[in-house]
Design a protein around this nucleic acid. Structure first.
Ligand code: FES
Ligand code: FES
Lengths: 151, 151
DNA sequence: AAGTTATAAGACTCTTAAGTCTTAAAATAG
DNA sequence: CTATTTTAAGACTTAAGAGTCTTATAACTT
C-alpha cells in the first residue's frame, strides 16, 4: 500500500469532519459507524491527529473531536505526515540509506521527479476542496455510500 | 514503503544482471554477496522473476540466472509488476474497492493523475538506461558501494 | 559412478502493521 | 454526588510481510 491503512482511515475521517458545516465536536463512535471503521482502531488514529494538533478533542457527553482549523487550511499532506510520516517523500526508491544526502542511486533522478509530483498533489489539495467535490457529485467516501448519505 | 522489500531487492538484482556485459549465467550467491542481500531471500525473489519469464536459470556448476532479453528492452515496470503486481496503479488512494470501475472517491481525479506520473516513469525507464548512468557516474547500488566496485 | 555446485520448493521463524479489548479519566446531566 | 457518555492509554491478539533453514533436484567434473 502506498499509504498505510491507518493513514487512509485518518484521511477518510478528516474528510468526514471537514464535510460537516457545523463545527461542534463529533463523537468518534458516529464516525466509526458511518465510515465503517473499527471504533477502537479509529480512536487510536484520531488520537495521533489530536496529538499533532490537527484535531482537538473533548470528553464527556456532547464530546468528540473536531478540526482545529478550517478544512480549507488543511492539506492532505498534513494528515499523511501526521500518521505515516515523510518516509514516502524522503526514502530511496532502492531502499538505500540517505537518499538526497549520500551519493544517489541510479533511480534517484527520476524518482525525485515523480516524488515531487506526489508531494505537489498532497500539498496543494485541501480537505475542503475534496469535500466540496464529494458533495457536489455525491462521490464515495465508503465502499458503497456517497457523501450525501453521510450527513 | 512504496515498493516492497522484495521488489526493491528484485530491482537491484535486475540492475546487477543488466550491468554485466557478458551474458553468461550469474550465480545467485555472487549477487547476494555483492548486493548484501540474504542469499535465500534473494533466491526466492529471483524465482518469481524466472517464473514470469524475465530471467532464465540454469542449475549446476557455471549455473545461475540471466536476463532473457536485453536490458534495453526491460522496463522497471516489468520488474515491479512481476513482484509487487499492479496494486499501486490500480488501488484507490482511500482504500475503497473498485477504483476506476465504481463511482470514484473525491481523491480519484488527482490521484489518477499522480499515478500516471508514476506509471510513465516506471514504463519509460529501462534497466540499461540506469546501469549506463550507474557506471558513468559510479552511482550507488548498495548502501556504500557504487557500480564500479561491483563488476 | 561419485562428488560437487548450483537452483527449486516449501516449511519454518521473526518482526511489524493491523485490529481488539480492557481499564482509566474527564465532563456532563439529573 | 451519582450515573452516563465520551475520549485516553495501553495491553493484548491476529495477520501479513520479511527473512531463514532444510531438503530436493538438476547439471557438471573427475
Ligand atoms: S538515493 Fe535512491 S532514490 Fe534517492
Ligand atoms: S476511487 Fe479512490 S482513487 Fe480511484
Amino acid at each position: 500500500m502506498l499509504l498505510s491503512k491507518s493513514c487512509v482511515y485518518g484521511l477518510r475521517a478528516s474528510l468526514y469532519l471537514a464535510a460537516r458545516d457545523e463545527n461542534g465536536y463529533v463523537p468518534i463512535r458516529e464516525m466509526s459507524d458511518k465510515l465503517e471503521i473499527s471504533f477502537h482502531f479509529l480512536t487510536k488514529i484520531l488520537q495521533q491527529l489530536t496529538g499533532e494538533g490537527m484535531l482537538e478533542s473533548y470528553k464527556g457527553p456532547n464530546g468528540g473531536v473536531r478540526l482545529t482549523r478550517s478544512g480549507e487550511d488543511i492539506s492532505l499532506m498534513e494528515v499523511v505526515m501526521a500518521i505515516d510520516g515523510d518516509y514516502m517523500l524522503t526514502e530511496c526508491a532502492l531502499g538505500l540509506p540517505g537518499c538526497g544526502v549520500m551519493k544517489p542511486c541510479p533511480i534517484h533522478e527520476k524518482w525525485a521527479e515523480t516524488r515531487d509530483g506526489i508531494r505537489d498533489m498532497l500539498e496543494s489539495t485541501t480537505l475542503t476542496e475534496l469535500t466540496k467535490k464529494g458533495k457536489d457529485f455525491d462521490l464515495r467516501i465508503t465502499a458503497e455510500g456517497g457523501f450525501r448519505d453521510l450527513m
